[in-house]
Design a protein around this nucleic acid. Structure first.
Length: 832
RNA sequence: GCCGGCGUGGCGGAACGGUAUACGCGGCAGUCUCAAAAACUGCUCCCCGUAUGGGGUUAAGGGUUCGAAUCCCUUCGCCGGCACCA
């Protein structure tokens, strides 16, 4: 009889349609089963689903389907992070509106997402660029504003001259725009910021979170907490013409982690942008200082940061002096670009003996170097002979009342002294800066603020939300938001006085939109509020979050900040959004390189799906390597997986045919088949739990190989009920990874109900045990023989058999066994 | 420079401190065929040996242990993050 062939094109679309109709992947709030919120990072609608999306969503979907079969009420939503720069760039390039471009892309990607055969709950879809979503983004922004967590200030901003927009620090990579690679410049503009720094300390805590260690470390380093002291130096203004002859002084606080070295401060350095620079410059130095400040301003971040180690320090003295509040010393004030305005106080005390940068600066300008910390027994030497600063924590010398005190204790005592004399205090400083959220762009959620001559910045009242984006705008490279040139958007009235007012024309960073979408999924259609407490309490926090590691210090930190702030506003009752986090790896091109159009190594999912079917693509992606590592695409590798699914097809259809011919009966091979079945369930259950999909598929392959061996040994085995059970188990185990073929074969075996509604198979540990076990016998750690034993073999029996082995005897060479190591049922090691 | 991760056959990769190289790819041989493809079967880490067998091997070197790919130290290489952070 003619065998049917595995032709995925014949049934994948059919099952996708039936699943959609049956609604099995729709999560209901009133479902009594335990909830499981399985989330994958929502895509940006760039136009096409790429292979990285497939990788991410296949892994997440396998896990979700697995959990569903294990009896959980799984919520697995999907949506689109639909605001953002590419839409605006496309608008400029193709002369279409961002909305048109974005919505068309979403339509296309919805189709592509359906073709994956993933169990999305489309009823909860969220599209962040639609007014029914961004209305609540705006509302949330105003909640932050009202709590003082969103504020507006003129601040130096990272400016990308190519994108014509500001960037958050997190979007600046090596001093360049993360999107286009253009070196970032600095500009002073009025900006909206979010006070994420208020949560710096809490963001350092990861209690009870199952997150990759690496991600926690990255966030920890990004926040960059350091402990030390704030010390207030004072300076006299050298030419106080504005204070009419009175000798004015000014306070210059610094942050240092080494207050113990304060007696070693031989100079003082301000960042070139420091606000006190002008006042502190003497007339003689004015010209040189202005030139240096100008030069520093012109240099982009990347130039300032790409300094090789060897590049000499530069700087200019201001001509004035500060007073060291502890030692009383007068030290010269310099400006130098190695001091950053954006960290600490934008000012440092220069301790060249014990800080490498200060050492280099002192060497460059011949400034004095005073040693104030002595490391252990090392004799004091002339600093002029040193090659580098001494940064060890030893004992203090040349430090007045603190001489002889160990550095750690000296830190505490100097801080106590500072506090006692009211010239400083213990302080904590963070690398983290507030989150800049203003974007001078059109395609984002408008910031819901109105500016009135009378009342200043006024929040848009709730009943006037959303502040809608106009349908159309002109896109010109002005560096300003296109909204400024849409009069019907710009001009409005003040909500307080009704007088003429203008709207804020900047829009919100899209990371704001993605900082709360996972909350909206719980209550996606609510038009009265951002969410209702009840469904949020039911579904949140997210149990499993799968997405790329590139968001470690962006989205994943912003979302944590949002949840914590909303909790403090009483809007949420939990503190962390994502309980378990998993980062998938990256799929590389066949050449092992990152896929890119210029390299010509891009694999298009639509093409390979057309050729092999969705199941094969899913399974192959998972088989490439560990899910968190990714790996190179291999055109022959996918053939192997395709052949495997063909073997599954043949195995099951042969079984259906064989079973049809004769009555069921027990056979000799049945026991072994049953054992294999239980072993395989045990392996695959553990592998799916740990998202080890590559080894899960390897086990599924071994399983099929084993079943083929069994029926080859005796075709009769196919009539054994235990073989029938093994076939059904194969389909349930395969269902999460290759949902279509599992469903098709499941129905061909004769089932009406979906394979995806079957309970996950259990296993009996007793039935996994082999009839005979192999015990390895080593002599001095080298394998010399193996023994076939009963599973309940005793140590004494193994010892006896091992000693009786001729191979063991030869290896021992007449030596006496001094030690006998026994690992029950596994191994014996005879030490002679 | 600092922080983190990783180095296993020709390739992708398996291996609770216990028979290294599972599974797959590729290769070789065979079955089927007029032939080819597909499918199926067997072999495939290296060295010596016809073989039973023996020796070696997880980037390199050292250590801990009865026993190390796995734990510790040093070096080299690759990848990721941060980068004048006071």
């Amino acid at each position: 009889m003619a065998r049917s062939r595995y032709q995925p094109a014949e049934f994948e679309a059919k099952w996708q349609a039936r699943w959609a109709e049956a609604g099995d992947t729709i999560a209901h709030d009133d479902d009594p089963r335990p909830k499981y919120y399985n989330l994958a990072m929502l895509p940006y609608p760039s136009g096409d689903l790429h292979i990285g999306h497939w990788y991410n969503y296949t892994g997440a979907d396998i896990y979700g389907r697995f959990m569903r079969m294990r009896g959980y009420n799984v919520m697995q939503p999907i949506g689109f992070d639909a605001f953002g720069l590419p839409a605006e760039n496309a608008a400029i390039k193709r002369n279409i509106q961002p909305r048109t471009w974005t919505l068309a892309n979403i339509d296309n990607m919805r189709q592509q997402l359906r073709r994956m055969g993933a169990g999305w709950d489309w009823t909860r879809e969220v599209v962040t660029c639609l007014p029914d979503y961004y209305k609540w983004t705006q509302w949330l922004f105003l909640q932050f504003y009202q709590k003082g967590l969103a504020y507006r200030t003129k601040a130096p901003a990272n400016w990308c001259p190519t994108c014509n927009t500001t960037l958050a620090n997190e979007q600046v990579v090596n001093g360049a725009c993360e999107r286009c690679g253009t070196p970032v410049e600095r500009r002073e503009i009025d900006q909206w910021l979010m006070r994420i720094t208020d949560y710096a300390d809490e963001l350092l805590k990861f209690d009870g979170m199952d997150w990759p260690e690496k991600t926690r470390l990255m966030q920890t380093n990004w926040i960059g907490r350091s402990e030390g002291a704030e010390i207030r130096f004072t300076a006299s203004i050298p030419n106080p013409n504005r204070t009419r002859g009175r000798k004015a002084t000014i306070e210059l606080p610094v942050f240092t982690t080494r207050p113990d070295t304060i007696y070693g401060a031989t100079f003082f350095v301000l960042a070139p942008e420091h606000p006190a620079v002008e006042q502190l410059t003497t007339p003689e130095q004015r010209e040189a200082v202005q030139a240096y400040v100008e030069q520093a301003r012109r240099e982009s971040e990347i130039e300032r940061m790409s300094v090789e180690k060897s590049k000499a320090k530069t700087g200019v003295p201001l001509g004035s002096y500060v007073t060291n509040p502890v030692s009383g010393a007068q030290t010269p004030i310099w400006i130098a670009d190695y001091v950053l305005m954006s960290y600490g106080k934008g000012a440092v005390m220069g301790v060249p003996a014990h800080d490498q940068r200060d050492f280099e600066f002192a060497r460059a300008f011949g400034l004095p170097i005073t040693q104030v910390v002595q490391d252990g027994d090392e004799p004091l030497t002339d600093p002029a002979t040193w090659d580098e600063a001494k940064t060890a924590h030893g004992r203090l010398v040349n430090s007045g009342p603190f001489d002889g005190v160990p550095a750690e204790e000296a830190i505490r005592r100097v801080i106590a002294w500072l506090e006692e004399h009211d010239v400083g205090k213990g302080a904590v400083n963070y690398r983290l800066r507030d989150w800049l959220v203003s974007r001078q762009r059109f395609w984002g959620a408008p910031i819901p603020i109105v500016y009135c001559v009378e009342h200043g910045a006024v929040p848009v009242p709730d009943d006037q939300l959303p502040v809608r984006l106009p349908d159309e705008a002109q896109f010109k490279p002005t560096g300003e938001s296109p909204l400024r040139y849409v009069p019907e958007f710009l001009n409005t009235t003040c909500p307080i006085c009704g007088g003429p007012a203008t709207r804020e024309v900047d829009t919100l960073d899209t990371f704001i939109c993605s900082s709360w979408y996972f909350l909206r999924y719980a209550d996606p259609h609510d038009d009265q509020q951002a969410w209702d407490d009840k469904p949020v309490a039911k579904w949140l926090p997210v149990d499993m979050y799968v997405g790329g590691p590139e968001h470690a210090t962006l989205h994943l930190m912003y979302a944590r900040f949002f949840v914590k702030a909303l909790r403090d506003m009483g809007l949420l009752s939990f503190s962390e959004p994502f309980t378990r986090l998993y980062h998938q790896g990256m799929v590389l091109g066949p050449d092992g390189q990152k896929m890119s159009k210029s390299r010509g190594n891009v694999i298009a999912p639509d093409d390979v799906v057309a050729r092999y079917g969705a199941d094969t693509v899913r399974a192959y992606l998972m088989f490439m390597g560990p899910f968190d590592q990714g790996g190179p695409w291999n055109d022959q590798g996918i053939e192997g997986v395709s052949r495997y699914l063909n073997r599954v097809w043949t195995l099951v259809t042969d079984f259906v045919a064989a079973r049809g011919e004769a009555a069921a009966k027990e056979t000799a091979g049945g026991r072994e088949v049953e054992r294999l079945r239980h072993k395989t369930i045990a392996r695959i259950t553990a592998d799916y739990e740990g998202l080890r999909f590559n080894t899960a598929l390897a086990a599924l392959m071994e399983y099929v190989n084993g079943l083929n061996k069994a029926r080859e040994a005796s075709p009769d085995t196919q009539r054994d009920p235990r073989y029938a059970a093994a076939i059904e188990t194969l389909l349930t185990l395969l269902a999460p990874m290759a949902p279509h073929i599992a469903e098709e074969l499941w129905s061909r075996v004769g089932h009406e109900e979906s394979v995806h509604r079957q309970p996950w198979p259990g296993f009996d540990p007793v039935l996994t045990l082999d009839e005979q076990i192999t015990v390895v016998v080593q002599v001095n750690g080298k394998v010399r023989d193996t023994l076939l034993c009963q599973p309940d073999v005793t140590e004494a029996q193994v010892r006896e058999q091992a000693l009786a082995s001729a191979k063991v005897g030869a290896a021992l060479g007449g030596r006496e066994v001094r030690k006998f190591i026994y690992v029950p049922g596994k191994l014996a090691n005879l030490v002679g």
